[in-house]
Simulated scan of single mutants.
Amino acid sequence: MATLLFHLGNVPDEEAEEVRRLLDEHAIATYETRAGFWGLGVAAIWLRDETQREQARALIDAYQRELGERMRDEQASLAARGEAPTLWRRLKHRPIRTLLLALLVAGVLAVSLLPFLWLHG
């Protein structure tokens, strides 16, 4: 019976490709499903052989630990060079977009909270 091994929803293409390559290198039998046009399906990598589950899970866990370390190192490097993305940098580089997003957030909060404030007052 097929076993869900790795969700592909919101996973960057590079990461998905690295996971596919890792599983192929270790001869782990998998297949993929897509979410479909309307996004109703499950985009994932599935394991064909249940006996390979522990090996596959260990490989993916090790890969994700390594990826996390790599991303943290990259973020630390950007911060050390003063290039890490911050709210002020985004505001400086894209002031109109940042302000419109802030207004959108304020509008959503207002629409969400006003009914409760009217009930209380």
Rank of each mutant, 00 (worst) to 15 (best):
G107I: 08
V105C: 11
L114Y: 07
L103S: 11
L87H: 10
P85Y: 10
S112W: 09
R90C: 14
L100S: 09
L114M: 12
L103E: 01
P115T: 01
L100D: 08
T98N: 02
L109I: 15
A106F: 02
L114C: 00
H93Q: 08
R94P: 00
A110I: 09
L109Y: 06
A110D: 01
A110H: 09
T86K: 12
R89D: 11
T86R: 11
L91K: 03
R97D: 11
P115I: 00
L104A: 15
L99D: 01
S112M: 12
I96W: 00
L113S: 03
W88F: 11
V105W: 13
K92H: 11
L103G: 15
L113H: 02
L101P: 02
V105D: 07
K92C: 05
K92D: 15
A106W: 08
L113D: 03
L114I: 14
A106E: 03
V108P: 13
L103I: 13
R89S: 12
K92G: 12
V111A: 14
L99K: 05
L109C: 14
L91C: 03
A106K: 07
W88T: 12
I96M: 05
T86M: 05
L103N: 06
V111C: 09
V108L: 15
P115C: 01
R89V: 03
K92Q: 11
P85I: 08
P85M: 08
R97V: 13
L103V: 06
A102C: 07
L109P: 06
V111Q: 04
L113C: 05
L114S: 05
L104Y: 05
A106H: 00
A106V: 11
L101G: 10
R97H: 07
L103W: 09
K92E: 15
L87G: 04
P115R: 01
L109A: 13
L91P: 05
P85E: 07
V105N: 11
L114P: 04
L99N: 02
W88I: 00
V105G: 06
R97E: 13
K92M: 07
T98L: 02
R90L: 10
L113V: 08
L101D: 14
T98S: 05
A110P: 04
A102E: 04
V108N: 10
A106C: 09
L113E: 02
L103R: 09
L99I: 08
P115V: 02
V108F: 14
P85T: 12
L113I: 08
V111S: 13
V105S: 14
T86G: 06
L99M: 10
P95T: 04
L104Q: 04
R89M: 06
L109R: 01
P115Y: 00
L113A: 07
H93T: 09
R90G: 11
I96P: 00
S112G: 05
